[in-house]
Amino acid sequence: MRLKFLFSFMMSVAWGCGAHANPLRLNTDGSWNFHGSVALFAATTTKGTTTVNGNSADVDLNLRDALDHLDFTGTGRVEAWNGRLGLIAEGHYIGLSASARATSGPAAGATVNVESTQSWMSFLVGYQVTDGQFANGRPYSFDVQGGARYNRLTQEIVGSGGVLNVGGTERWWEPVIGARYSWGIADGWDGAFMVDASGFDTNGNELAWSATLGLARRFNERSSLVFGWRHYDIDFSTARAGGPFGTDLYSSGPFIGYAYTFN
């Protein structure tokens, strides 16, 4: 088994998805509104390049490929709003692994294990720029967000018996900005479009960005089923003792989640 084949499992499937699809209905009496959501994003397409110890490999995965090697994934978002100002925390984790017996190269005959984990936590301040109603009485709102994101990326290949040990873990902070437009579609239905971008050539991340289109089916004033489509793109690289390390890829696919609003 060639190492490039193993590299192809290193990044895929699920990235954070936190589009709260309901127009923000904010209190004006000084009290707080809270919104929480959890979601799963299933990337039907993941393409790009991963690099470990200076060796690069193309990635071209569908959802079935990625799920075969998924260990665990989860994402969540919490928002607290008081008037037009909001505090937002969003976290995400995904772990992937693969194992096979190498048939060539320095690790020939050994069992080779590949591990890839990606996690991040964002801390944002939000501001609702405008809100109101359309002529048909449906609500809308537009808010912007900005803050910092902490990232942790592991890309590691280890052979049994110590014959191979390449890759490692990188951690970094970066700025992040975002914007969201939400609107009422019909009775019990809301929509939202959200974009964010981070990195801006900070600590090795040239740019990461995402675009999310979501729909929410409200069960009542507090609970909603949220679903839609998301695209995520990242270009990260850094120099390690063993050589260049990084990933340059994009993922696109549907997501589904649950959102809850409480005072």
Rank of each mutant, 00 (worst) to 15 (best):
M11K: 10
R64F: 09
G228Q: 07
Y140E: 04
A66M: 10
A42G: 14
G132M: 02
A66W: 02
L40W: 13
E206I: 05
F34D: 06
L24Y: 05
A98D: 14
G184D: 03
T50G: 11
W189V: 12
F7I: 00
S116E: 07
E174L: 06
L215I: 12
N113V: 05
A98W: 08
L61W: 06
N82K: 15
P23A: 02
D187S: 13
T44L: 07
I177A: 12
T212M: 11
D201W: 03
Y93Q: 06
R101V: 15
I177K: 08
Q145D: 09
T261G: 08
D68C: 08
F134N: 06
F72Y: 15
T45V: 14
F9P: 00
G199R: 04
G191V: 02
S122Y: 01
E170G: 07
K47V: 04
S237N: 15
P244Q: 12
R84G: 00
W209A: 13
A241L: 12
P23L: 07
G54P: 06
V38H: 05
R180G: 00
T261F: 06
K4V: 12
D187L: 03
S119M: 11
L61T: 10
L153S: 03
T75P: 01
S37E: 14
T44G: 10
C17D: 14
R84T: 06
S252P: 01
T130C: 04
G18N: 12
P244C: 00
T111L: 08
A89M: 10
L3K: 02
N33W: 02
N62K: 14
S99Y: 01
F72C: 00
W120M: 11
R240N: 05
F236L: 09
F134M: 11
A98E: 11
S31V: 01
A43L: 05
R218D: 09
D201P: 04
G30V: 10
G246I: 01
Y181S: 00
F193P: 02
S12P: 09
